[in-house]
Amino acid sequence: HGLTGELPIGIKAAGIKTVVTIHDLIFMHHPEYYNWIDTKIYAWKFYKTCKEADRIIAISECTKRDIMRFGGVSPSKIDVIYQSCSTEFKARESEKKLQKVHTDYMLPKRYIVNVGTIEERKNVLLAVKALTMLPDEISLVIVGRPTPYTDKVKAFVAEHAMEHRVKFLHGVPHEDLPAIYQMAEACVYPSRYEGFGLPIIEAIQSGLPVVACTGSCLEEAGGNETIYVKPDDAFGMAEAIKQVLVGAPGREERIAKSQQYVKRFEGNNVAQKVLDVYNKLI
């Protein structure tokens, strides 16, 4: 079982049955985010794997469609098995913990949150641009590992004198993340392309409404009550955020329906489903 989209060379010739898990094909959709030679190597491995694997596991329907489109693979050869999502974000943190995290990170009074590596593909600059069209008391907290793209985001923040409204947090321990989610008013996830989009589910479990972007699997992760905008539409992003801030009509109903939707990803018995795939081959 190749867990990362590839199989050992020569395994088919050895007569061994094979399964491969493919998480995403971002290098096909957005090669501009990769080194040229890397995209060629990844593509070669992908095409070879599609031909040699007996079964393919995709982590979302979106990834399945991509495998069919780019690899010419029959849908009958592909099994969709969603990642299992922990329910830890559903547990409400104590008031003491919330206050400690708020003080330790000097969090704003009112903020929306973004969680994920701060890289160009994840497109957090769109949320920063949208912030210029939101009330001054609303801030944006960006939680994630920095990359060179972070400098581009910070340059926009400085150019628009928004340093007091945009906070970057790097190296946040996992145990503090639920509190950061829970004290936010909403989550924004403007990624251009994902294989699944786990932070959306974490945010919904934390009791937040979510605004995300169209074009990949995010509608699959967030369901109908998440609001989706085009990944270059800053005005649309701002208008969507206004619809989910505290006090917006229908906000609580939106959250409740979203939490009902994401139950399909909780306690997902991945092991049994993978075993079922193995049994198809035995």
Rank of each mutant, 00 (worst) to 15 (best):
W44P: 03
W44G: 05
W44C: 04
W44E: 08
W44R: 10
K45F: 05
K45D: 01
F46A: 14
K48H: 09
K48N: 06
K51M: 12
E52I: 02
E52G: 00
A53Q: 03
D54L: 04
R55Y: 07
A58V: 11
I59Y: 05
T63A: 10
R65L: 04
R65E: 09
D66I: 11
M68A: 04
F70Q: 14
G72Q: 11
S76E: 15
S76P: 09
K77W: 10
K77H: 13
D79L: 10
D79A: 14
D79S: 15
I81E: 04
Q83L: 08
S84K: 13
S86I: 10
T87C: 03
E88P: 12
F89Q: 01
K90C: 13
R92N: 07
E93W: 04
S94T: 11
E95W: 01
K97P: 00
K97W: 03
K97D: 01
Q99D: 05
Q99L: 08
K100C: 11
V101S: 05
H102A: 14
D104Q: 13
Y105T: 05
Y105H: 10
K109T: 14
K109M: 14
Y111E: 12
I112R: 09
V113H: 04
N114V: 04
V115G: 05
G116N: 13
T117M: 07
E119Y: 02
R121H: 11
N123W: 10
N123H: 03
V124T: 12
L126Y: 13
A127V: 06
A127G: 02
V128C: 10
V128G: 11
L131C: 10
L134D: 06
P135Q: 06
E137P: 00
E137M: 15
I138S: 13
L140Q: 01
I142L: 13
I142Q: 00
V143L: 00
V143W: 01
G144A: 00
P146I: 12
T147N: 07
T147K: 05
T147M: 05
P148S: 08
T150Q: 09
D151G: 02
V153L: 10
V157E: 08
A158C: 04
H160K: 15
H160N: 15
M162S: 04
E163I: 09
H164Y: 09
H164A: 14
R165P: 13
R165T: 02
V166C: 01
V166K: 05
K167T: 11
L169A: 12
